[in-house]
Design a protein around this nucleic acid. Structure first.
Length: 449
RNA sequence: CGGAGUAUAGCGCAGCCUGGUAGCGCACCUGCUUCGGGAGCAGGGGGUCGAGUGUUCGAAUCACUCUACUCCGACCA
């Protein structure tokens, strides 16, 4: 993509409404535009990141055996009356009427709807297990939206719903999501730690929040240091097998948010030199809730014994529009965003230091074509701008590698590669730049881990 | 929903106290010069001063009402 032909409205000044760093940087990097409180347009650069996040989620959900579908944003009030949540949900739910004065709502979540789909078609235990997921916009009329897309009213969420004949089977479904989530966040360059979450009125221990550590996190968290460096299950993990050893391994180390922490238990479970007390951002939540919806909504299946029983369900959410700012919170510096390669809007930016100079233009065009041919997602800054401005833009929008070409280097047949994260610069022969970049980028795509 | 603020050009702000018909920086447009860390010079365009009502000869400025947005708290993917 040529920057001169792209739509990248970067801001030099910091819009005053933005308080936290990710919100500021998303506005400044031209990723989002606020349209009303808690409602955002995703501009091209932001949308590209959002779609990269989406692709990783889809790949890992699919790998775990979940099946993607798409349900509407608008739902019938009647469906929600069946579960009792139409009355229970409160003002957070946006209620709307159509022209026939029928009652609808903009879905804040989809348990009722997916249960309706399930009960219409699935009647036998032989069709289980089943996990259906979709990635769709939700709306929750938050009293106080804030922090940009971290806490918006309209948000894009992946929500998966598992259906099983018994609780034991449901636990296995839960484990599959647990492992899929570990892999999903790791592929996005995040260290996400599963922490035991409040299960509310249902009880039990089958609920985990996935928390990433960031100084600006919204809640205090306490965990064992070894969780931070713990290697994730590999891509050839057998999701049809028993995943409980993996889950047990992860959950055997103490980790809890401030709502759930038991200080005494924490201190007795974790040696002093292994204690991590930090701040965290919740980027996912998995939950087993049994027959909470299937019983009232009569989503039953016939078991091997010929008897009907309500299915055991769980739901598993990832807020995509929250993950994006969460990545920024975890990875930025004073100059801007530092994208992990796997979610970066572009993998590299080619900086032409003297656009308009015939030799420099020609050399850049050649490198640009080679980068594209090498399969690198590259942004070519071909604008007639001072060098400093181009560096500042490249740093701000956080592209992992800058490949820098100007008359000076050209004269000596050299090109420079700057690593956004470390600030390290390497100078190498012009002919070797593309191969070098490729060797840097490809392993970090993490599409094969 | 309680508390506190803000609203003047795309963004950041001054002007308001003490009323006289709107200004600065960045961005934008034109030309020339520049070109390795947000360039220089010259010229130029852009604003129903959030909305309404009132006071006044005259309102961005004073008064009242409303709206939007932000921050703190309670709530939440």
């Amino acid at each position: 993509m040529r920057l001169s032909r792209y739509f990248l409205p970067v801001l030099r000044d910091v819009p005053k409404e933005a308080e936290i760093v990710s919100h500021r940087l998303m506005l400044r990097a031209g990723m989002i535009r606020q349209q009303a409180s808690g409602l955002y347009s995703w501009l091209p650069l932001g949308y590209k990141v959002l779609m990269k996040v989406q692709k990783i989620i889809e790949e890992e959900q699919n790998r775990s055996g979940a099946i993607e579908l798409l349900m509407p944003t608008i739902q019938s009030a009647d469906l929600w009356r069946e579960s009792g949540r139409y009355e229970a949900y409160g003002k957070e739910m946006l209620r709307i009427e159509d022209r026939h004065e029928r009652e609808f709502l903009y879905g804040p979540t989809n348990e009722e709807m997916v249960t309706d789909i399930f009960r219409a078609y699935v009647k036998s235990y032989k069709d289980l297990p089943l996990n259906l997921y979709h990635i769709q916009w939700k709306f929750r009329d938050e009293v106080r939206p804030r922090f940009g897309t971290m806490r918006s009213r309209e948000f894009l969420m992946k929500d998966a719903y598992s259906f099983d004949i018994t609780k034991d089977d449901a636990v296995r479904a839960y484990h599959r999501m647990f492992v899929a989530y570990l892999r999903t966040y790791a592929r996005m360059g995040l260290t996400a730690i599963p922490m035991q979450a409040d299960t509310g009125p249902i009880g039990g221990d089958l609920s985990h929040e996935f928390i990433i550590l960031a100084d600006t996190g919204e809640s205090a968290v306490f965990c064992h240091r070894d969780l931070i460096e713990k290697p994730i299950p590999p891509k050839d993990t057998d999701f049809r097998g028993d995943l409980s050893p993996i889950v047990d391994d992860w959950t055997s180390l103490y980790a809890a948010t401030e709502e759930m922490v038991d200080k005494a238990a924490y201190e007795s479970a974790v040696p002093e030199d292994k204690r991590v007390s930090a701040r965290g951002i919740e980027v996912g939540h998995i939950f087993y809730f049994g027959t909470k919806y299937s019983a009232p909504m009569k989503a039953t299946v016939t078991g091997p014994d010929g008897k009907d029983s309500p299915v055991h369900m769980g739901s598993y959410g990832v807020g995509l529009t929250r993950v994006v700012p969460a990545i920024i919170e975890a990875s930025h510096d004073e100059n801007g965003i530092i994208w992990p390669v796997s979610v970066a809007p572009f993998e590299a930016v080619l900086i032409n230091l003297k656009a308009g100079d015939a030799d420099t233009d020609a050399a850049c065009e050649k490198v640009y074509a080679e980068l594209q041919a090498a399969g690198i997602d590259v942004l070519y800054d071909d604008r007639d701008q001072p060098a400093g401005s181009k560096f500042a833009t490249a740093d701000l929008v956080g592209i992992p590698y800058q490949i820098i070409l100007g008359p000076r280097g050209l004269k000596s047949g050299e090109v420079e590669i700057k690593h956004r994260k470390s600030g390290e610069r390497e100078t190498l022969p012009l002919s070797g730049g593309v191969d070098r970049l490729r060797s840097l980028v490809e392993p970090q795509r993490m599409d094969d881990i």
